[in-house]
Amino acid sequence: MRPSARLGPRQRLAAYTALARVQARSQYAYRSDVLFGLAGLLLQIYMLRLVWTAVYPRSGSAAVEGGHEITLATQITYVVLASVQSWLTDSGGLSTLQLRVREGVVALDLARPVRFTSQMIAARAGSTLAMVPFVAVALVFSVLAGGAQAPASATAMLAYVVSLVPAYSSALLLGVIVSMISFWTLELDGVYSVYLMTARFFSGALVPLWFMPDWLADVTRLLPFQTMVYIPTALYLGQMHGTRDILQALAVQCAWAIALWLVLRLVWLRALRRVVVQGG
């Protein structure tokens, strides 16, 4: 019998909520680290604003594929939102499972009456929720610094809010999938560096897809990373026109979130066998 079958739906929900709450509190155990992280985010936003202001055409807009023009204000708003979203999804980190596997504490996690993968998801969600108040500070700073603008329309704002759910789900699932590698390597620092660089680039957090070469943009659209940053931000800015394009973008996000959940299940089944081998 699976451990999760020992608890009812309400009990499992209460257990996951408790795990998320504990992880959220642990984020504040090292307040200086959180504050330095926030300071780094604000500095990043400010420096990106200076860079894009300096390199942008004097006309204040740049033509992109399809004849559309991206204004400087639009580009700055994009990098602000992309930076904040990336920082928020990265705040959970990938070191928790690595340490628990290395120290053998993962055996206690496996003995709990709730699914292990769901424990990891709840813990990362708790870490993210702990960072939400700091995101508000970052957004206020962006507005005061003249770097953020309002959404393109009420429809764009609604689409953006809806898209954040599958966007965060994909980022969270990808993070847990990568953290599962610790069952094989016991060390994630190198893997995490490669993953972070890859995710930030192909998600559009560094350069939006509309400034990428056509072939690179086409490759990026085949990967799940664009669903985490580019699609929500493009929706906010009204770069996806018409109800059909908006619904198609949301469908792509949801499809990737479901696919990543299935991948996580498969990876976990392999990792579970690895745990049995390590334990004899």
Rank of each mutant, 00 (worst) to 15 (best):
G104N: 13
Y30N: 02
L186S: 10
C254A: 11
L262Q: 05
V135I: 02
V178I: 14
W268M: 14
Y30Q: 04
A167E: 10
A125K: 01
V55F: 14
F36M: 10
A159V: 09
V51H: 12
L38E: 06
A107N: 13
W268A: 12
V22H: 15
L42N: 14
R49K: 13
F202C: 02
Y56Q: 04
W87I: 05
H68W: 08
G60P: 07
S179T: 00
L94C: 06
Y195P: 00
A249Y: 02
Q11P: 09
A136M: 15
L108W: 11
V176T: 05
L196P: 04
L99N: 08
V176Q: 03
P224I: 11
E69L: 11
A73M: 05
A150Q: 08
L266W: 03
R2V: 06
A156V: 03
G175E: 06
A24R: 14
A199R: 01
I181K: 03
E187K: 12
A54Q: 12
L164A: 03
P57W: 13
L209A: 13
Q98R: 15
A251T: 15
Q27C: 11
G190W: 14
W210P: 00
M1Y: 09
S59V: 14
V229Y: 05
W87L: 06
T220S: 15
A18W: 12
Y16E: 07
G242W: 02
Y16W: 09
S163Q: 06
H241G: 13
A257C: 11
L19R: 05
M240C: 04
L206V: 14
C254L: 15
A39Y: 07
L260D: 00
A150F: 10
Y168Q: 05
V277C: 10
G8S: 11
R49L: 12
T233V: 14
G190N: 15
G238S: 11
S91C: 15
Y78I: 10
S86C: 05
V105Y: 08
W184I: 00
S61H: 12
Q239D: 01
S32K: 12
G8A: 14
Q23D: 15
A138Q: 05
